[in-house]
């Protein structure tokens, strides 16, 4: 079970209090009736599914009830940070030639390939 920091309550709370709400930073097209079917499918169905850092919305449904955004590693499930809705998307990509800004225990890890060896 995950421990999630709600940026509004300012506390680390159990995952049971939260509801995942999909990708963050998706803007509904202002001219929704005018866009093509392809553009609508992109907006409505296509979501990021990275193996690594993901930007997503969460709702503290059994707490303050508010939506907020989070950056999480989808391999370790570790939350890198949470921030309030409406705040800009944080840029966590390292500058060229610089080591990643993430702490060592937040970097993506290999899963079973690394721990369970090779097939013969």
């Amino acid at each position: 079970m995950l421990l999630i920091h709600c940026p509004y309550c300012g506390e680390d709370r159990s995952e049971l209090e939260f509801r995942a709400a999909g990708d963050a930073h998706i803007a509904r097209p202002a001219n929704i009736a005018a866009i093509s079917d392809e553009e609508f499918a992109d907006y409505f169905f296509l979501r990021d599914n990275p193996k690594g850092l993901i930007y997503e919305r969460w709702r503290h449904i059994h707490g303050c009830g508010r939506f907020f955004n989070a950056v999480r590693d989808t391999v370790s499930d570790k939350f890198v940070m949470t921030y309030k809705a409406g705040e800009p998307k944080p840029d966590l990509s390292p500058a060229p030639g610089v080591a990643p800004a993430l702490p060592a225990d937040s970097r993506p890890v290999e899963t079973y390939e690394a721990t369970e060896g090779r097939a013969e």
């Binding site: 079970m1 391999v75 899963t111």
Partner: peptide
């Protein structure tokens, strides 16, 4: 939530 962790809650 999206995850590649092969464990689960």
């Amino acid at each position: 939530f999206n995850s590649y962790s092969q464990t689960g809650g």
